[in-house]
Design a protein around this nucleic acid. Structure first.
Length: 531
RNA sequence: GGUCCCAUCGUCUAGUGGCCCAGGACGCCACCCUCUCACGGUGGAAACACGGGUUCGACUCCCGUUGGGACUGCCA
């Protein structure tokens, strides 16, 4: 039975590196029909952060990493919070002393510090000098009786070779003489990671310990503890680190590392998972697919394909994943509501692989467009000026305008405001902007385009359809013997007042007849006809 | 300093001795589409750290060098 665990320390928000560790544990367990457990490692009273545990649990839930056993869930090995298991660790610490693979140490922090400084100066490896190992039973009892605080240290044998077969790194050999006598129990009677982790992983029947590479150097100590207690060690898989741009271990100081903050910024859960999964793992076999659902990841995941080298956490690619997933999810949602509105709707893909919805009547199409606006609005509402969404008349325009900038919202919702500005705060079109040499738009062309455009639009009654507006103006351009751009550019700039904006047909449609004619008219007044 | 880990385009990576004068993706650049921006399409620049072996043949195996990283806490 495969059993894995994620064992975070509740000292803050869930870190993206932690998310990846959790994800690999989850994927591996799911892939092999095993169990994934969550255990809270809160043995350091000093680093306790209020609310961190809740936030951790909450984020894990948000990203869909549900655990089979863990806090607030029934499980055969409860409790899953280490601070509630201290009796267990004390018992095993005692057992280790009795087996003489651990010993009490009364050295003060000051003495240890002094010792290390000296060793550093002599360019020696800082290691505990085993002063307390020489204590007799009587001396130990006397110190205990005098209430001297003490820790329990692991007694590492000297001159032995320890082989570890890591699932990712292969065989790693350690010389035990280079290993320090690790503290197992602190003077506050709480265990350190090293003891608690070994005891719990054994008791909770963890088969595979999948954890960050930073643990590799202490793994031989852990293996010795398993052996000393007569236990079979689990399999180890040390996954590579996530790195800052300068290749150091990913840290808060060099950018955003909390999963919550990425979620808050609007990154989609499947995009984040997709991105993180591929940082240090690849399905291999020449696979060129990049977009994977959680289900596909579970199917394809394999520890043998996890890399050895660290990966830089570079969010450029995350932005791309987010855009891909944004489109995918959005189009799926549109399909659903289109079918709800009109069971006979025809959905075809255009050349860009975007869905085109053809409805059986104009009412359905209108309703769909409105719904589409509402969906898009929900994606960017928090970035918009509230006055646009509050007034009914501006809201109607907004729901249309927002559809015209769909791909921009999908790409980056926080920029929606800037793209929508031209619908609500029209700037007078600067003459210099309308005239465009490259497009062959001079003053005469502008005057013709605006006045003829205005004339045609005045009597037009197809304002509810972008397609009809398009047909009208394209035909007009032909009649006037103008290139499309010569007619459409002046009109678009007259409508938006901007160099960049949604297209002419889209703007006309969203703005509606009255406002459109007003804007074109105003530009026309200001643009002198050629003499 | 010591111990351990690692090393293919700027980044994420494919590659398990001949399929590779190295493939994909992001980013970048150019062109196309086009009423602008964007979207989309096509193309381009861009990497096996170095030196020795082993082999008929090395990105792939071995050794060394160099470089990077982690650990070296009564933190995890």
């Amino acid at each position: 039975m495969i059993r894995t665990r994620f064992a975070p320390s509740p000292t803050g928000f869930l870190h993206v590196g932690g998310l990846r560790t959790a994800l690999y544990n989850y994927l591996f367990a799911q892939h092999s029909n095993g169990k994934f457990l969550l255990r809270i490692e809160d043995t350091d009273q000093k680093r306790r952060v209020e609310g961190a545990e809740e936030s951790l649990l909450n984020t894990l839930k948000l990203v869909g990493l549900d655990y089979d056993e863990g806090p607030y869930k029934e499980g055969p090995h409860a409790p899953y919070i280490q601070s509630q298991r201290t009796d267990i660790y004390r018992k095993y610490a005692q057992e280790l002393i009795e087996k003489e693979v651990a010993y009490p140490c009364f050295c003060t922090t000051e003495r240890l510090e002094e010792m290390r400084n000296k060793q550093q100066e002599l360019k020696q490896a800082p290691m505990y000098d085993r002063a307390c190992l020489k204590l007799t039973k009587e001396e130990i009892e006397a110190k205990k009786a005098a209430n001297e605080p003490f820790v329990i240290r692991q007694k590492i044998p000297r001159g032995e070779k320890l082989r570890l077969n890591d699932l990712i790194r292969g065989i790693v050999v350690f010389e035990t003489s280079t290993l320090d006598d690790q503290v197992l129990m602190k003077s506050d009677n709480f265990p350190t990671y090293h003891l608690a982790n070994v005891v719990d992983d054994h008791l909770m029947e963890i088969s595979h310990v999948i954890r960050g590479e930073e643990w590799l150097p202490s793994t031989p100590k852990h293996i010795m503890l398993y052996k000393a207690l007569g236990w079979e060690p689990p399999q180890f898989a040390h996954i590579p680190l996530l790195l800052n741009k300068d290749k150091s271990k990913l840290s808060k100081r060099q950018g955003d590392v909390s999963v919550e903050s990425y979620l808050e910024k609007g990154y989609l859960v499947p995009a984040l998972i997709n991105f993180i999964a591929l940082l240090g793992w690849h399905p291999g076999k020449g696979e060129e697919q990049e977009i994977f659902t959680m289900e596909e990841l579970v199917n394809k995941f394999d520890l043998a394909q996890v890399h050895k080298a660290g990966a830089i956490f570079d969010t450029d690619k995350l932005d791309w994943f987010n855009f891909q997933w944004g489109k995918k999810l959005h189009f799926k949602e549109l399909e659903k509501i289109a079918k709800e509105i009109d069971p006979d709707v025809k959905i075809e893909e255009n050349q860009r692989k975007e869905p085109v919805h053809t409805f059986s009547n104009a009412d359905n199409e209108r309703m769909f467009s409105q719904k589409r606006g509402e969906i898009l609005l929900a994606k960017c509402e928090k970035h918009l000026k509230p006055q646009w969404t509050e007034k009914p008349e501006t809201k109607a325009v907004l729901l249309k305008a927002i559809v015209t900038i769909e791909e921009k919202i999908l790409k980056n919702p926080s920029e929606a405001q800037a793209h929508l500005e031209c619908f609500f705060n029209p700037k007078d079109a600067a003459k210099a902007l309308i005239l465009n040499e490259k497009m062959k738009v001079d003053e005469a062309v502008t005057a013709t385009a605006l006045s003829e455009g205005l004339k045609a639009l005045k009597d037009f009654d197809g304002w509810d359809s972008i397609n009809k507006l398009q047909t009208l103006l394209l035909n007009l351009a032909k009649e006037l013997n103008l290139k499309n751009g010569q007619l459409l550019w002046p009109l678009r700039v007259a409508l938006s007042g901007e160099e960049f904006s949604p297209g002419t047909f889209e703007m006309l449609w969203a703005l509606g007849k009255d406002e459109s004619l007003k804007r074109i008219n105003r530009s026309l007044q200001k643009t002198p006809r050629e003499a």
